[in-house]
Amino acid sequence: MARIEFTPQLHRFVETPVLDTAATQLGDGLAAAFAINPRLRGYILDDQGHVRPNVVVFIDGRRARDLRGLTDPLGPDSRVHVLQALSGG
């Protein structure tokens, strides 16, 4: 099963589950996490359901490509990490 984990920094604001899911696409995996804690959705997705600009999603060490439709595939052994993007200098 794919495993979805959220950055510890988010945990300061909202419960962030570590989730094992049979989802085959990123959107379905995130939906499963949001079903556990609906408040988490607002931290990850905007009002249109797109990944927020300050959030980065990695699937198996590679940056997710479809941040609007969330159709990136998940394999049975995929590891998804949802992080807050950092900027500045």
Rank of each mutant, 00 (worst) to 15 (best):
Val55Lys: 00
Glu5Val: 10
Arg68Glu: 09
Pro73Val: 06
Gly89Gln: 11
Val82Gly: 01
Pro53Asp: 13
Arg39Thr: 04
Asp28Val: 08
Ile44Pro: 06
Tyr43Val: 09
Ile59Glu: 09
Ile44Gly: 04
Ile59Cys: 03
Arg12Asn: 13
Leu83Gln: 12
Val57Thr: 06
Gly49Trp: 00
Ala23Asp: 08
Val18Cys: 09
Ile4Val: 13
Phe13Lys: 06
Ala32Lys: 07
Leu74Tyr: 02
Gly49Asn: 01
Leu40Cys: 07
Arg52His: 04
Leu86His: 05
Pro73His: 08
Asp77Phe: 07
Val55Asp: 00
Val82Lys: 11
Gly88Cys: 02
Ala22Asp: 15
Gln9Lys: 14
Leu83Asn: 14
His50Asp: 15
Val14Gly: 09
Asn37His: 15
Ala31Arg: 07
Thr21Asn: 10
Arg3Ser: 07
Pro53Gln: 06
Val56Tyr: 06
Ile44Trp: 04
Val80His: 06
Leu70Pro: 00
Gly27Cys: 05
Val18His: 12
Leu30Gln: 03
Asp20Gln: 10
Leu40Thr: 04
Asp46Tyr: 10
Leu67Phe: 04
Val14Asp: 14
Pro76Thr: 14
Met1Pro: 11
Val80Glu: 14
Glu15Gln: 11
Arg65Val: 13
Tyr43Cys: 14
Leu86Cys: 08
Asp46Ala: 01
Phe6Thr: 05
Val82Ala: 11
Ala2Leu: 06
Pro38Tyr: 03
Asn37Val: 15
Asp66Met: 04
Ile44Glu: 12
Tyr43Lys: 12
Gly42Tyr: 02
Met1Phe: 12
Gly61Glu: 12
Ala32Pro: 01
Ile59Pro: 00
Ala22Trp: 00
Ala31Ser: 07
Leu70Glu: 05
Ala31Cys: 01
Arg3Val: 12
Gln25Trp: 00
Asn37Ala: 13
Asp20Gly: 07
Phe34Trp: 01
Gly69Glu: 09
Gln9Asp: 13
Tyr43Gly: 14
Asp60Thr: 09
Arg79Phe: 07
Ala33Ile: 08
Leu74Cys: 05
Thr21Ser: 14
Val55Gly: 04
Arg63Ile: 12
Val51Asn: 10
Arg68Ser: 00
Arg79Val: 12
Glu5Thr: 12
Ile4Thr: 01
Met1Gln: 06
Phe58Ala: 01
Ser78Leu: 07
Met1Tyr: 11
Val80Lys: 06
Pro17Gly: 08
Ser87Met: 11
Asp77Ala: 13
